[in-house]
């Protein structure tokens, strides 16, 4: 029996084959999948903001920010015996849902999220295998750790796999 594990907004979860993992309605948020192909394990984070320094008060909800989400993902894999060099990543999301002429930083949050995730992956030396970022459509994504295929659904472009 295989299940599909749902990742909510600002959430982080893990899945092992034969289970799949998905998150829906990615707008300016970025879905980050880090996986270990050999062990057929993966983790997915639904990231809302590029860095935890943007948080305004108190306790950090770590999966919400790119930097803390990656840190937690990597730590978990390393703790479970997957060396960092074997980890790979795929990302999707970071769209600009509304077209404003304004250069307001909130309006540009999608591209900033995607950029932040890519920079961090480079810092951790995790190979980014494929990406589907930007544009202005919402995405629902599903990752299968068994074959490492990421399926991306948008409302007007159908389904694609990366």
């Amino acid at each position: 029996m295989s299940n599909v594990i749902q990742v909510g907004m600002a959430d982080l979860k893990y899945a092992n084959s034969p289970n799949k993992i998905r998150t829906s309605g990615l707008g300016s948020c970025v879905g980050l999948i880090i996986y270990d192909e050999r062990e057929k394990k993966c983790g997915m984070a639904h990231i809302m903001l590029p860095e935890s320094s943007l948080a305004r008060n108190g306790v950090l909800h770590r999966p919400k920010y790119a930097d803390t989400a990656i840190e937690d993902l990597v730590k978990r894999f390393v703790d479970e015996g997957s060396p960092v060099y074997r980890l790979k990543a795929k990302i999707a999301g970071g769209a600009q849902m509304f077209n404003f002429s304004s250069t307001n930083e909130v309006m540009r949050i999608g591209p900033r999220n995607a950029e932040a995730v890519k920079v961090l992956l480079e810092e951790y030396k995790i190979k980014l295998i494929s990406e589907d970022v930007g544009g202005n459509s919402g995405r629902t994504i599903e990752f299968n750790p068994d074959n490492s295929i990421l399926q991306i659904k948008t409302i007007n472009k159908g389904i694609k796999e990366i």
């Binding site: 600002a10 309605g25 707008g27 809302m48 903001l49 948080a55 849902m97 909130v106 919402g138």
Partner: peptide, 23 residues
């Protein structure tokens, strides 16, 4: 501004500001 898309993707855009202050 107008968008036709998944409800959650659209609403999440409006939650960015809120999400800086809490969950």
């Amino acid at each position: 501004a107008l968008a036709i898309d998944m409800a959650m993707a659209i609403l999440s855009h409006g939650l960015i500001e809120v999400s800086k202050a809490g969950d």
